[in-house]
Simulated assay, not measured.
Amino acid sequence: MMTIISLLLLASLLPHLTFTARVNKGIVNGTEAKPHSRPYMVSVQKNWLHICGGFLISDEFVLTVAHCRDICQILTVVVGAHDLRKSKTLKRIGVKKYIPHPDYNTRPLRNDIMLLRLQKKVKLNNNVRRISLPKKCKDVKVLSVVLLAGENFGLTAH
């Protein structure tokens, strides 16, 4: 149950975690993270352009937002990048299956969560890892310090 809650929490943050390599945006009062310190972050792309962020939750599944994919749109996932504009460590992988929440709705926007099953398993290494999820049910305390990552994979705020 806690895993599902954690995934839903992550998915609710995804619209705020996206970035683009073409526009100079950033997290307000954010600082650049150490390269590859967020190895679970992925770029979900259409035609080689970033459209959404996501998290690697296993060696073959990515969690992202359902609104990231229009019908008949083919997406790819980029793993292993710190900065999409100049990364030499990135790996592009096709999406085998799109699994949106069964009750996903665009108007009003609800259940905006989707799993992407990759065409092949990702080789995990120092630059590519799955996100760690809580093993036990725990409530997050009010005013807890959290990390937010996004914008070219490199900015964090806490």
Rank of each mutant, 00 (worst) to 15 (best):
T106Q: 08
V95C: 11
D83R: 01
P108Q: 07
Y104Q: 05
D59N: 11
I99T: 06
S58K: 00
S37E: 13
H36Y: 12
V44H: 03
G53D: 11
C52W: 04
H82L: 07
T76C: 05
N105V: 06
V79A: 12
V42C: 09
P35V: 13
G94H: 13
D103F: 08
P102Q: 08
K96A: 14
I51S: 03
V78T: 09
L75D: 04
L75R: 05
Y40W: 14
T64D: 05
T89H: 09
I57T: 01
H82I: 05
V42N: 07
V95A: 12
T89F: 09
T31F: 10
K34C: 00
V44G: 02
A66G: 02
K97H: 12
V78C: 06
K91A: 07
L49F: 15
L49P: 12
R69V: 10
V78A: 08
P100R: 02
G80Y: 01
P100K: 03
C52F: 06
L75S: 05
Q45R: 15
S43T: 07
I51A: 06
L63R: 00
S43I: 05
Y98V: 14
R38G: 00
G54H: 02
E60V: 03
Y104M: 03
Y40F: 14
I93N: 06
H101I: 02
G54Q: 01
C52A: 11
P102E: 08
R38H: 10
C72T: 14
H50D: 14
P100I: 02
I51N: 05
I51E: 07
A81F: 06
D70P: 06
Q45T: 14
C68D: 01
A66I: 00
L75E: 03
E60I: 01
F55I: 00
W48Q: 15
R38K: 09
R85Y: 04
K86Q: 12
I93M: 07
T76A: 08
K91H: 10
V44S: 02
K34M: 03
N47F: 15
K96M: 12
Y98W: 14
Q45K: 14
T76D: 11
R85M: 10
K96W: 12
Q45P: 10
F61V: 03
L90C: 10
V77F: 10
L75C: 09
H67P: 02
G94N: 15
C68K: 00
H50V: 13
V95P: 08
